[in-house]
């Protein structure tokens, strides 16, 4: 890679979140689930934000969700982000909300409430990030 090649922003790494990123590299979206109250949470933390419990286990989740809100970025944050692209908040089936991109040819197809499902994209280095696609409508 040359120095002039624009690079995407990569996530800083922490030991706690390693299971999340390892899941992404394996094509699996993982969330923390509380051993006590069994609720899921995102982002990863040392406590359960629902009951305060500190016993948390990583679980693979469905990767399905609904668009809580979205925007089409028309002026990219850097050359590594060619506009237009969709930044969205996704409400996952298991409860937590996360930010991501929705990968779509025509941003006009995205709406609040759209069903989406996870997919994974290389992000530079050994980083792999979860992004979303519009769920296929069954006919």
């Amino acid at each position: 890679m040359t120095a002039s090649q624009p690079a995407k922003i990569t996530p800083t790494s922490t030991a706690l979140a390693e299971a999340y990123w390892e899941g992404c590299r394996q094509g699996e979206l993982r969330l923390q689930q509380c051993d006590s109250c069994e609720r899921h949470q995102f982002y990863p933390r040392v406590l359960c934000t629902h009951c305060g419990g500190d016993a948390l286990s990583w679980r693979a989740v469905s990767g399905r969700g609904l668009v809580a809100s979205f925007t089409v970025v028309r002026r990219g944050i850097s050359k590594a982000y060619p506009a237009p692209y969709v930044v969205a908040l996704i409400d996952l089936e298991e409860g937590p909300r996360m930010m991501s991109n929705i990968i779509v040819d025509d941003p006009q197809q995205v709406a609040v409430g759209s069903a989406v499902s996870v997919t994974f994209q290389p992000w530079g280095g050994d980083h792999v990030l979860p992004v979303f696609e519009l769920a296929r409508v069954d006919s």
């Binding site: 996530p11 995102f42 970025v73 944050i77 850097s78």
Partner: peptide
């Protein structure tokens, strides 16, 4: 780029 969560928001390129 420093607006947003450094692990779980910033990489997605929100301005």
């Amino acid at each position: 780029a420093s607006t947003g969560h450094p692990q779980f928001e910033q990489p997605y390129g929100a301005t």
